[in-house]
Nucleic acid binder design. Structure first.
Lengths: 337, 337
DNA sequence: ATTATATAGGACACCGGTTACACATCAAAA
DNA sequence: TTTTGATGTGTAACCGGTGTCCTATATAAT
């Protein structure tokens, strides 16, 4: 928060310099058609000469509009989110929005604060990748503000708003079915926390695939952990302590899978040979990891683009029917399985 | 850009509801000491009841201040920048700033547009990771605006402003000296474009290390490429066409090194055995790649934190002496060499 | 009782734009 | 000649806060 006695050139100064009124100058910056070419040119020259910089903030204040949107994600260190961010940026910059970025590190409190801050900054709307457990208070606040909002990646239960995500259940089912077809029947589920909705959806897919193959799920092969490389490493250790260790592991996401595979190598195990590993997300690194990771493409960039489009639509008409876009996942089989 | 006939609650409404003047209410949101506890409480209750949201934009307009800063980077897909971003965020959120993010993809035109947009949004200052070649026009514009600005990662020649970076020359020298000590004397330099200042600095380090060891640099072992995985892959191919191929390669950065190592495996070569590879940056992935990459730590997060601090200082006093912070690089020897 | 000094709160202009509306000018239509 | 309408520009209020200055009341000091 800082003071800046800026020597900012104002529209008034431009108008004075060009010998017109401020209103006329204003019409020119917004290139209104009802201005003669002569005055237009005259004023534009004054602008250049004085080094005029348009003040979008003042303009937005008066016109009750906004040219910014907020993007709230959980962690930029996760390439999944940086790809999503790329998608959002790409789409919204086309539309002339500038993006406020905030990261929650999966903390509800932080998310709450970010939402407030962004509102205070008059964002036109928000794309929110919610934390894993949202307090009812947060949900209530969002609902009351009635600001254009699109959730992405994770859905907030009970909050009815636009949403973009993929069919996690189906994605996991594809991955597990693939492992079962490869002959595995003791498949572990590593990583994630079972109280998050993201985990629950994945788990349903996990169960479905087993059921369709006539197998039953062994609950003792479920190992929760933080959704990080380190979490994956620890979860693997736990799973290997099992009396009858799994022959294949499904990881909550690619980050966890990387941790698992790294740990396997440390223990002298070869991913893909001694044990199959599949991940979820298909971040760029998945294809270049050694061995390349079998994983489910989760289209982060597409999610970003779609979320941006939905937000743009909603900003134009906040009362329209709410929309959900669920992208179809895709399995990429590589050498880790 | 969107219109929103917001049902925003204003300070006036709060004041009316509480039976005080707008000015008094204003003093309360800024918790001025000269307000009695009774009225303070009364007004705060009105705020809660009406669901008042502070309008930082209007406040900033009047007080000629800003609570936002702009961060301009070249590419979020590069983990180096996402780590830098994390550092910036961490520091500036402490100070109460909100961050506008923009990515240039190394295009001067895009950078120019982003700078304008951010100025129009009244940012209090900008942290700029400049594109590799800045047009003189851009430089002149930045200079004229006289806005608090800190450059990071790359320096802009002729633009005198605060800067945070590392000692690239020394970093490369450490890496090359390491290779020479391992017995290599035909070392290739892969990736990057020789007209960027970042490339030139690295090259100086490359030359210095050779000179100190009494070796001469073979210009035919320099292969430029885009600073991406694909670029690295192609550069490696080129280098292998050489009549007398190198026994070790130095890569412009880790991304290039990953491309190089991936390509090596495709060709049946083992990084670290058939050919040594070193990178630059030490992104998180470097330690978990297979084989783990020998590389020079470039402290992106620290750069971010330092840049944020410098910017904060400069915003407080734009006329102070310009500062440069050059961090010392550090070599991480791993299995790729 | 009178003056001095805080203390609490109000009135009003202002930040840099936009907008509704009024007004002047000039050409074409009646 | 008067009316009509289109075109181009000015006037003044307004967006939602902050800053400056001023007044009313209470308390303390003389």
């Amino acid at each position: 928060m800082a003071k800046k006695k800026s020597g900012r050139v104002t529209l008034q100064q431009v108008a004075d310099h060009a010998g017109v009124s401020r209103a006329t100058a204003s019409l020119i910056v917004r290139n209104s058609p009802s201005i003669s070419d002569a005055t237009k040119k005259k004023v534009q020259e004054s602008m250049k000469e004085l080094g005029y910089v348009y003040d979008r903030v003042a303009a937005n204040l008066r016109s009750q509009s906004s040219s910014t949107i907020g993007l709230i994600i959980t962690d930029i260190a996760n390439p999944y989110y940086s790809e999503l961010l790329t998608g959002v940026h790409q789409k919204l910059e086309e539309e002339g929005y500038t993006v406020f970025l905030g990261t929650t590190f999966d903390s509800d409190a932080k998310q709450d604060k970010l939402l407030s801050t962004m509102l205070e900054h008059r964002v036109g709307g928000v794309i929110l990748c919610p934390v894993s457990d949202n307090s009812p208070a947060t949900i209530e606040r969002i609902r009351q503000w009635n600001i254009p909002i699109v959730t992405a990646v994770r859905e907030i239960p009970d909050l009815h708003c636009d949403y973009v995500g993929i069919d996690y259940e189906k994605g996991v089912e594809m991955a597990i079915t693939h492992l079962i077809e490869k002959g595995h029947n003791r498949i572990a589920f590593l990583g994630g926390l079972s109280d998050s909705s993201a985990w629950k959806k994945r788990f349903e897919g996990f169960v479905n695939a087993h059921e369709k193959a006539g197998l039953s799920v062994d609950d003792s092969l479920i190992f929760q952990s933080a959704v990080t490389r380190e979490g994956g490493s620890k979860a693997l250790d736990e799973s290997l302590k099992h009396a009858e260790p799994p022959t294949a592991v499904f990881c909550f996401n690619d980050l966890v899978a990387f941790g698992v595979m790294q740990r396997m190598r440390e223990l002298g195990l070869k991913p893909g040979e001694d044990m199959s590993v599949v991940g979820f997300d298909n971040v760029l690194e998945a294809a270049t990891f050694y061995p390349p990771l079998t994983t489910v493409e989760a289209f982060p960039k597409h999610i970003g683009i779609n979320a941006a489009s939905l937000l743009h639509e909603r900003i134009k008409d906040n009362s329209r029917e709410e929309q959900r876009i669920i992208l179809e996942p895709e399995l990429f089989v590589r050498e880790s399985s």
